[in-house]
Design a protein around this nucleic acid. Sequence first.
DNA 1: TTGAGATATGCAGATATTTGCAAATATAAT
DNA 2: ATTATATTTGCAAATATCTGCATATCTCAA
Lengths: 131, 131
Amino acid sequence: MPHRTLIAQQLARFFSVLSHPVRIRIIAELRNSELCVNSLQEILGISHSGVSQHLATLRAHRLIKEHRRGRNVFYRLCSPEMVTWLVDGITFITPDNSDEERLRTAAAMAKEQWSDPIDDRLLFEYEALNK
Amino acid sequence: MPHRTLIAQQLARFFSVLSHPVRIRIIAELRNSELCVNSLQEILGISHSGVSQHLATLRAHRLIKEHRRGRNVFYRLCSPEMVTWLVDGITFITPDNSDEERLRTAAAMAKEQWSDPIDDRLLFEYEALNK
DNA sequence: TTGAGATATGCAGATATTTGCAAATATAAT
DNA sequence: ATTATATTTGCAAATATCTGCATATCTCAA
């Protein structure tokens, strides 16, 4: 298989993982801290099973890593830089049927909120754990 | 609806448009030239109907624009910069079941091939047509 | 045993693929 | 010019496949 085809397939797989609002929210929430299923459930306001299933998808595609502490399982991003790239993608969304003006301001606010700096100690931990 | 939710939804929609290998190939092929259905059909090696339907999806979400010249309809990207961003995304794909080494070299080659510079005259045309 | 989380099942809705046809436009012949 | 023909593109219906969600069940550690 030519490499263009291979990469197009893998990219498509990757995008399909990102093509759900809850998974995007999860990635954004994990941008600068690690969280357990319970915290995510409260933040997102969906069932614990739902959170768990979306985490399973993210885990299966190696976007997140887990580690147990006490009786909780905490999740972190494999590549925290992904959030920067993801926020850049907001540039390309276009209004479908929703109010164009509202979308613009929402985009600006989301970019700001999801762009706050990654905690240094956390970054250190990431590096330690990723090798 | 809180703006985070709105943006997450719109981003998810956007990603779902990108979550098909043929549409990714089309976007990549349109990076520095405009093409008609026939050319795309030859390049991609799929049925003309298939090309047409994927173009319809891209058009419906305003990723491409069309204009007729002679007997052909030519398609161009609304935001050529999107290809740069898309190529950056290759960084985050991880091998699933396929050979890891092969994926790495394929990624490098695709990044190179899909990163060749945009023709200046074309960029000028884009700017003229996009206002 | 209790609490946190993962997994299995089944259903509903969405999405892709194929096939065939319709509409529009160009080309050529008369 | 008019008619016939071929090309290009869009569209629709049928089928198959994928995805998400809810409920229930299961595992593991404290």
